[in-house]
Structures are given as C-alpha cells and as structure tokens.
Deep mutational scan, measured.
Amino acid sequence: MTEYKLVVVGAGGVGKSALTIQLIQNHFVDEYDPTIEDSYRKQVVIDGETCLLDILDTAGQEEYSAMRDQYMRTGEGFLCVFAINNTKSFEDIHHYREQIKRVKDSEDVPMVLVGNKCDLPSRTVDTKQAQDLARSYGIPFIETSAKTRQGVDDAFYTLVREIRKHKEKMSKDGKKKKKKSKTKCVIM
C-alpha cells in the first residue's frame, strides 16, 4: 500500500485542523484551538488504489514558523489553505509557496490551493482571484467548507493525484537520464 505524506499549511484560523478532522473523523470542530502540530493517518481508496494518507496539520501562528522547514522537508505534497473571508490569509499563500519551493529546492512541488469556509456569506476573496492565482502557479484550486464537508475529500484526493503525477514524471525523467548515460565512448 502506497503511503502519501501530505502537509496542510496556511495562516492561523483558516480551518486547516477543521478540514483535516472532517476528512479523518467526519465531524466539524467549530471551536478554535490553535494547533502546534498534529499528525493523522487514514486509509482510503483513490482511483481504485488503496493508500495510506499521513497528514500533518501544522501551526499557522507566526511564533511556530521555525518548525516549518522541518515538516516541509518531509512532506510530499501540500494543501495551501486560505479562508475566503480573510484576504490576508490569501496573500500569505505566496509566502508559504515560496518557502516550500526553497526548502524542497524545487520549482515543481505537488500543491493544491484550497479556499476554505465557502459556506460563509462574508467572502472577501473572489473565486476568480483564487483561480487566477492557482493557474499562475500551475496547481489545482478547490473551494471547501469544513463545516458542510463540501470539497473536503476532493481537496485531499486531488493532492494525492498531483503527487502521483509528480512521481510518474520524475521516474520518466530518471529513465531518460539513465538511457543517456548508457551511451559509451570508444577510443581507438
């Protein structure tokens, strides 16, 4: 069974824990209790493949930012979460993405942009803004509501699919490099 290491990042209060708990335990946590770091595991079937999701729910508070490099190193894919009623959390996505790329030393890291709290009427981040940002990053965008469960499975499952595509691409690139290195030079 394939294991996928997913990391949920975003500013404090955007609903990272609520999304994760909704996926794992099928219930909505409405009281806000700032996370330092929590880890969850769940076995699911995605596109006919049974897999184990190892999900790291991270601290959004700035005082825990020193811990970010460590979990970013171990993560295979990242859910970059903002709240649709919090423009600052949307603007912060850029910083999370840049930090992930720096730590992973790669421009090509599996990510999904997630606009959470889409059940709320007080939207300050337009869907088109988020779609445009995701398009500019070359990553999928999904709106979710941890409260109603809308888009929750889709967000995590899409990230797994992005990781699969990335692994497939990397193995193809690896095979191309191996083929090239088999060419021999004969000096007579």
Rank of each mutant, 00 (worst) to 15 (best):
E63T: 06
Y64S: 00
Y64F: 10
Y64L: 08
S65K: 09
S65P: 00
S65G: 09
S65V: 08
A66S: 11
M67L: 14
M67Y: 00
M67P: 04
M67V: 03
R68A: 08
D69E: 11
D69M: 02
D69P: 05
Q70G: 07
Q70F: 03
Q70L: 02
Y71A: 04
Y71R: 00
Y71Q: 01
Y71P: 04
Y71C: 03
Y71W: 04
M72C: 06
M72H: 02
M72T: 04
R73H: 09
R73Y: 08
T74H: 07
G75M: 05
G75Y: 11
G75P: 03
G75K: 02
E76V: 14
E76L: 08
E76C: 13
G77F: 08
G77I: 14
G77Q: 00
F78A: 00
F78R: 00
L79T: 01
L79N: 00
L79M: 07
L79F: 05
L79G: 00
C80T: 04
C80N: 03
V81T: 09
V81W: 00
F82Q: 04
F82K: 01
F82E: 03
F82C: 15
A83F: 02
I84P: 15
I84A: 15
I84H: 15
I84Q: 15
I84V: 15
I84T: 15
I84M: 15
N86M: 03
N86L: 02
T87F: 13
K88D: 13
K88P: 12
K88V: 10
S89G: 09
F90A: 10
E91P: 04
E91K: 06
D92G: 06
I93G: 03
I93L: 11
H94R: 13
H95R: 14
Y96A: 05
E98C: 04
E98V: 02
E98W: 02
E98K: 06
E98Q: 07
Q99W: 08
Q99M: 15
Q99F: 07
I100W: 05
I100C: 05
I100S: 02
I100K: 00
K101F: 08
K101A: 11
K101W: 05
V103F: 13
V103N: 05
V103Q: 03
V103K: 04
V103H: 06
V103R: 05
V103I: 13
K104T: 11
K104R: 14
D105F: 06
D105A: 10
D105M: 09
D105E: 12
D105Y: 05
S106G: 12
S106P: 06
E107T: 10
E107S: 12
E107V: 13
D108F: 09
D108C: 09
V109E: 02
V109P: 06
P110Q: 03
M111I: 12
M111L: 09
M111E: 00
M111H: 02
M111C: 05
V112H: 01
V112I: 10
V112Q: 01
V112M: 05
L113P: 00
L113Q: 02
L113Y: 08
V114C: 07
V114D: 00
V114Y: 02
V114Q: 02
G115K: 04
G115T: 07
N116E: 08
N116Y: 01
N116Q: 15
K117N: 14
K117S: 14
D119G: 07
D119Y: 05
D119Q: 05
D119M: 06
D119F: 04
P121G: 14
P121H: 13
P121A: 12
S122T: 11
R123F: 11
R123M: 13
T124F: 10
T124H: 12
T124G: 12
V125Y: 13
